[in-house]
Write a protein that binds this DNA or RNA. Structure first.
Length: 326
DNA sequence: CATATTTGACCAAC
DNA sequence: GTTGGTCAAATATG
């Protein structure tokens, strides 16, 4: 565990710019928020505009928050911002079923890696360096996903990453079992991203997907064999570029991701938008590689698109300051 | 053959 | 004790 948490100047600069934007957005949000909001009995267009502004600012702020959060974890995993879950939005539990208090903690087994039982298999693979204690601290967020009718009653396994199911459990009080997935590349690329999929009790067409951890793998699906690409199960409608990037290209990728991207939304909407919700945009670790660009149109709907699933204490993350100006 | 899923067992945390 | 998350052997799939 060496302290390799020092950031390059590029990253520091990036962060500070990010932080500036974040602060500015928050200020703006505060100003808008304190608008007296005259309770006019009639709906003036101005009111509507104000509301829109509020929503927009809220979006911006939460995007910043998520971004910083992700950046934080991927760059310096040793610092925790909000280790506890519970921050995950309760989200539309229309069924009023309290469900478990969002404490979907992993249970870090003591032996953890390497064959719990002793399948030997050897440890000579130093990939297995993952502190089990950190697993709980991994970033976590969830989404509600609605399957489309014509897609059949199939789970929403449709994000850009490839997952491998490793478990299923009946959950107390839930009608449907919960499925557990981990990144396919866990063993090969030491990628510890996981997700859980839970079908909603009340609305069978809605799946609650909880992601934990960010992908450190490069999900490059570059089928070496020139002949027909060996796709797995998923359809093939999506052709992703699968660009492998080098760390030095990070800024570039961030730049492109942070610019106004209206694709992925309805065609030609001039809505300012940061990258979508976490599972849909791609990020790499600061010192990792890659980040491929892609904007798939989800076949399913993300129900609470605007809900900041990951709520962060809006106090300013001081660790970032330290990282930058240490 | 390799790779993915199923499913009971195991374990940590209540 | 129960519950939720993970492991891994058995099984399925290509």
């Amino acid at each position: 565990m060496e302290g390799k948490d020092l950031l390059s100047w590029e990253q520091k600069t990036l962060l500070s710019e990010l932080i500036n934007g974040f602060e500015a957005a928050k200020k703006l949000q505060a100003r808008i928020g304190e608008a007296p909001s005259p309770s006019s009995s009639f709906l003036s267009p101005a009111t509507a505009v104000a509301e829109t502004n509020e929503i927009l600012v809220k979006q911006i702020v939460s995007s910043y928050e998520r971004f910083l959060l992700l950046l934080n974890w991927s760059s310096s995993p040793t610092v925790q911002l909000i280790p506890t879950p519970a921050t995950v939005v309760p989200v539309a539990n229309s069924g009023s079923v309290p469900e478990s208090p969002a404490s979907i903690n992993g249970s870090p087994r003591s032996e953890e890696f390497a064959d719990g039982g002793g399948s030997s298999e050897s440890h000579h693979r130093q990939d297995y360096i993952f502190n089990p204690k950190k697993r709980k601290m991994l970033p976590k967020w969830s989404e509600k996903v609605r399957i489309s009718p014509e897609r059949g009653l199939e789970g929403p396994q449709d994000d850009v990453f490839s997952w491998r199911k490793y478990g299923q459990k009946d959950i107390l009080g839930a009608k449907f079992p919960r499925s557990y997935y981990r990144c396919t590349h866990r063993s090969t690329q030491n990628c510890w991203a996981t997700k859980q999929v839970q079908r909603s009790d009340s609305d069978a067409t809605v799946f609650e997907v909880t992601y934990r951890g960010t992908h450190t793998c490069s999900q490059v699906i570059t089928p070496p064999p020139p002949p027909a690409s060996p796709e797995k199960k998923q359809e093939d409608t999506r052709v992703r570029p699968a660009i492998t990037q080098k760390p030095k290209d990070l800024l570039e990728s961030l730049k492109s991701n942070l610019t106004v991207r209206t694709d992925g939304l309805d065609d030609g909407k001039d809505v300012f938008s940061f990258p979508d919700t976490p599972p849909f945009y791609n990020y790499g670790t600061i010192n990792g590689d890659f980040g491929h660009v892609e904007s798939s149109t989800p076949i399913f709907d993300v129900v609470d698109w605007f809900n900041p699933m990951v709520e962060i204490d809006t106090t300013f993350p001081t660790f970032l300051n330290e990282s930058i100006y240490y």
